[in-house]
Amino acid sequence: MMKATYYPGCSLEGVARDYADSIKCVCALMDVELQEIPDWNCCGATAAHSINRRASIELPRRNLRLARTLGNPDMLVPCPLCFNRLKTAVHDLELRNPCSEPPQGLEFPKIWDLAAFFATDEKLEKIASRVQKRLEGLSVVSYYGCMASRPPYITGAPDYENPLSLDKIVKTLGATPIDWPYKTDCCGASLIVSMPGAGLKMVEKLLDMARRFGAEAVVVSCQMCQGNLDMYQDRIEADTGKHYGLPIIYFTELIGLAWRLAEAGGWLSRHFIDPVPLLLRKGLMAGRG
């Protein structure tokens, strides 16, 4: 059993509870024990870095200090925005203390974007070894969004213009990853709330492209992307007269499906665009779990 520090972030306690549940379940079966940072706080998100730069560094730094007390070498962060803000806080420290190595025992853990963590060769093998039902015949696009990749001097992502972590996982599960051009295009994030005209247009563009490339579903690792593409899809359909019906599925849910976990049905039932009809049609689900 490997122990890893875990920073869920605020949305995984609420709106993205489906993501949170699937992560916990899949990690346990991957022999990864998640140790949540005690008393963690919000990373400040876009709001902090937009109008309060100091807070945008100080808020994640408190989490980093708390994370250190757990003493694990690795820290898993499912939300790409939290991941990005935590990495930025580390980067900020390094900028200001370029030479000083942290004293022994006081190093920060290695911060992982959850999808990248699952896409290492070792983890992919483990994922493959548990597959009960390969997701043959399911064609999906992987949608990474912005914050796990960009900017590379913060994220450390080697393949920031063409990330492959989700595609590798999809392939391991037996589904078909479609190569498409909008892997890392922005979903508009909170613009959907503050500037819905612009935000909805950005989501529409993504859905259009996914459909054009023949995707039957979109696989994501970001709960913000998931929310924007899933919760607002019917509204965009109503506004534009287009039809998408594209389920937006977390990669951890997809793993659960290929592993035939009974819990997977419960996670999927919390989506707005119901993935179950598609999965039943493809013979990839036994029925509602």
């Binding site: 870095h49 914050m147 990749s149 960009r150 900017p151 890392t184 295009d185 613009l191 500037m195």
Partner: peptide
């Protein structure tokens, strides 16, 4: 209106 997508800086 900038969405902080970091494409430009990248």
């Amino acid at each position: 209106i900038c969405a902080s997508c970091e494409t430009c800086s990248t």
